[in-house]
């Protein structure tokens, strides 16, 4: 059902399901693969996906990521990973994949009625 859309791998698209051209073709004639960029904006926070870019190797990817995604001090640390190395769940399977969590409201604190005298718990 999704094969009608021609896609290249990008971030959450698994290579084998991306459709369209094979990775070697989609690597572009200049041969610079696609990289996903993750940035830690400040100490104590997670690295967060910022976007993607093309680069010949990891070092160039980090340097380009600095210029493209941190021109205004948005980061103190950069991760890059080649897009083809990211594996992702299939949005088409999302309903069944995440279904097990749907009926477990007892995992939330608000499920439990306690007497007011308990105050904060």
């Amino acid at each position: 059902m999704q094969c009608s859309i021609r896609k290249f791998y990008y971030g959450d698209i698994p290579e084998e399901q991306g459709g369209g051209a094979a990775p070697s073709e989609s690597m572009n004639q200049h041969g610079w693969p696609l990289w996903e960029v993750f940035i830690r904006s400040k100490q104590g926070l997670d690295h967060k996906h910022a976007g993607s870019l093309h680069a010949a190797d990891a070092r160039m990817a980090i340097e380009n990521a600095r210029d493209v995604y941190t021109r205004r001090q948005e980061g103190i640390s950069i991760w890059v990973v080649e897009s083809k190395n990211i594996h992702a769940s299939d949005p088409g399977d999302a309903d069944s994949l995440f279904e097990p969590a749907a009926d477990k409201i007892y995992r939330h604190p608000t499920f439990y009625d306690l007497p007011d005298e308990v105050k904060h718990m």
Partner: peptide, 25 residues
């Protein structure tokens, strides 16, 4: 700085367009 931003904006947008299945080249 402004011209650098524009280069950056072009790159954000090319990446977004690539997700729709056309290569940068």
């Amino acid at each position: 700085a402004k011209v650098q931003d524009e280069a950056g904006h072009g790159l954000y947008l090319y990446s977004a367009a690539e997700t729709l299945g056309m290569s940068r080249d």
